[in-house]
Computed example of a mutant assay.
Amino acid sequence: MTLSRFFRMGACSALLLTLAACATPTQAPDYTAFRSAKPRSILILPPVNHTHDVNASNGLVAQMTQPLAEGGYYVVPVTVEMETFRQNGLDTPDDIAQVSAPKLQSIFGADAALYTTVTAYGSVYHVVSSDTVVTASTKLIDLKTGSVLWSGTGTASGRDLGDRPAAGGGVIGMLVSAAVNQAVNNLTDESFRVSRITAERLLRVGPPDGLLYGPRSVKYGTD
Rank of each mutant, 00 (worst) to 15 (best):
M1V: 09
L3E: 14
R5N: 12
R8Y: 11
R8I: 14
M9G: 02
C12M: 15
L15F: 10
L17W: 04
A21M: 11
T24K: 13
P25Q: 06
T26G: 00
Q27R: 14
Y31A: 05
Y31E: 06
Y31N: 06
Y31Q: 07
Y31R: 04
T32Q: 14
T32R: 15
F34W: 11
F34R: 03
S41G: 10
L43K: 08
L45C: 07
H50Q: 14
H50T: 03
H52T: 15
N58P: 00
L60D: 04
L60I: 05
Q63W: 00
M64I: 03
A69D: 01
G71Q: 08
Y74I: 14
V75W: 02
V76Y: 09
P77L: 14
V78T: 14
V78E: 10
V78H: 12
M82Y: 03
T84C: 05
F85D: 07
Q87G: 15
L90K: 12
I96P: 03
I96W: 06
Q98E: 13
S100E: 12
S100F: 03
P102I: 10
P102Y: 11
L104Y: 07
Q105M: 10
S106F: 02
I107F: 01
G109A: 09
A110L: 10
A112K: 08
L114G: 03
T117M: 04
T119I: 04
Y121W: 11
Y121R: 05
S123R: 14
Y125C: 11
H126W: 14
V128P: 03
S129R: 14
S130N: 09
S130Y: 01
V134T: 03
T135N: 01
S137N: 10
I141G: 02
K144C: 06
L149A: 09
G152V: 01
G152P: 04
G158D: 08
R159N: 14
R159I: 14
L161E: 09
D163L: 06
G168I: 05
G173C: 08
G173H: 08
M174H: 15
A179L: 10
N181I: 11
Q182V: 10
A183D: 06
L187K: 13
L187W: 01
D189P: 00
R196S: 09
R196C: 00
I197E: 02
L202V: 00
L203G: 04
R204S: 11
R204M: 09
S217H: 12
S217M: 09
G221E: 06
T222C: 08
